[in-house]
């Protein structure tokens, strides 16, 4: 076991006869921002869900904060999930609750804070994602981009040590995208939060990642710092780089 906060060792995951992850090994150190790039359908979401036990790997080891978690019980995962906040690809907000209650939801469950303190946390988190005046609205009454930001606030609210983002900026406008990237950067610098960011946006990755992993058809095809990846010879990486430069 190295000093990594998150480590995958040879993780394999199949659905029926389709193998999605074909032996994935990587690690992320504390405070690091690790981008996982790949075209859609390669299994990026499946990889994140294996980390937090929403899916279980067929074989392989998954270490979170010094603990091997791939086989532990659903009850024991409660504590792991408290450490790992996950921002889903969908906003995944609870339709029947207001924005305020959505953000407060996890805080109420995980901590025994008085109402005053909860209010304060919710306000602070919504401010972090540049939202105000939406607290009493229902999720369906605000735009998709706002919903995604509320879902970000909901995850940050329980102050996890490890943050998992599943395509946090997909479908957002450039201004909000920058704000979200800045937020990920700030959290990692000020709170030493480890971030795993799943994305297909090389532009964002080059801007804020400490390290980048490129996933294709269930395998890691290349990895390294942004500078190293820029020199990559792999065709898929090159294609991602082309995209990034034409967008910039």
């Amino acid at each position: 076991m190295s000093d990594a906060q998150v480590q995958f060792i040879n993780v394999i995951k199949s659905f029926g006869d389709r193998t999605i992850l074909k032996g994935i090994s990587f690690e992320a150190k504390q405070g690091e921002i690790l981008f996982i790039l790949g075209t859609s359908g390669t299994g990026k979401s499946v990889l994140l869900k294996n980390l937090v036990g929403l899916l279980r790997p067929d074989t392989g080891e998954i270490w979170v904060d010094g603990e091997e978690v791939s086989q532990i019980s659903e009850e024991k995962y409660f504590d792991i999930r408290k450490k790992c906040g996950m921002v889903f690809q969908h906003p995944a907000l609870f339709d029947s609750l207001t924005v305020f209650e959505n953000v407060a939801f996890g805080v109420r469950k995980h901590y025994d804070y008085p109402e005053e303190k909860i209010k304060e946390i919710v306000k602070k988190c919504l401010k972090l994602v540049h939202l105000d005046d939406v607290e009493e609205k229902l999720p369906q009454d605000i735009s998709y981009g706002m919903q995604k930001r509320v879902s970000l606030a909901r995850t940050v609210a329980i102050s996890p040590k490890i943050l998992l983002f599943d395509e946090p900026t997909t479908g957002l406008d450039p201004v909000t995208t920058n704000a979200v990237n800045q937020l990920i950067l700030d959290l990692s610098k000020t709170l030493k939060t480890t971030s795993l960011v799943v994305s297909h946006d090389m532009h964002c990755a080059l801007a804020i990642a400490d390290r980048i992993i490129v996933l294709d058809k269930g395998n890691i095809v290349d990895q390294g710092t942004p500078a190293e990846l820029k020199a990559s010879k792999h065709p898929l990486v090159k294609e991602f780089l082309m995209e990034a430069t034409t967008h910039a």
Binding site: L54, F78, C84, M86, H90, L93, F94, S151
Partner: peptide, 9 residues
């Protein structure tokens, strides 16, 4: 949303 529920304990 079901996954989100599980994540929030």
């Amino acid at each position: 949303q079901i996954d989100a529920l599980k994540m929030l304990g």
